[in-house]
Amino acid sequence: MNLNLTLIGQAIAFAVFVWFCMKYVWPPVMQALQERQKKIADGLDAASRATRDLELAQEKADETLRESKEQAQQILEQANKRANQIVEEARDNARAEGERLIAGARSEIDQEINRAKEELRAQVSLLAVAGAERILESSIDEAKHRELVDKLAAEL
């Protein structure tokens, strides 16, 4: 256990080692560590940002999907309404047309009836006259009785 020059030699060696460590070992290792730390932090940051972006995009997609569904529903409803309207209109038109046709037919029928009546009337008077002629044989004054028969025919 002698204290001697070794003490000083050790102190010097120690000082040199510490100096070397401080100058050439510690800073590069520390710098590398810090840089890596920063890199990892950045990476994590980017990852979380990407996740957030993804969430946003998904939300947007959901929104768009819902909107388009709604729109489709709306369009469908409108189309249904329109179709009903068209059917209704067509029905109305058909009814009106039918009524018009019926009215036309009816008026034609009336005309026909009238014409037939006229004809009938004309013929009735003739027939009546002819019948009467036949019954009475020339005892009738044609001009005198014509007026009577016409009056009769007009009453038909």
Partner: peptide, 24 residues
């Protein structure tokens, strides 16, 4: 006092150099 332990110096400096060389 005027003596130096050769083995102590040799090993301590050698090991210190090994440490610094490794880390450097």
């Amino acid at each position: 006092f005027w003596a130096i332990h050769v083995d102590t110096m040799l090993w301590s400096i050698g090991l210190g150099v090994v440490f610094l060389w490794l880390f450097r």
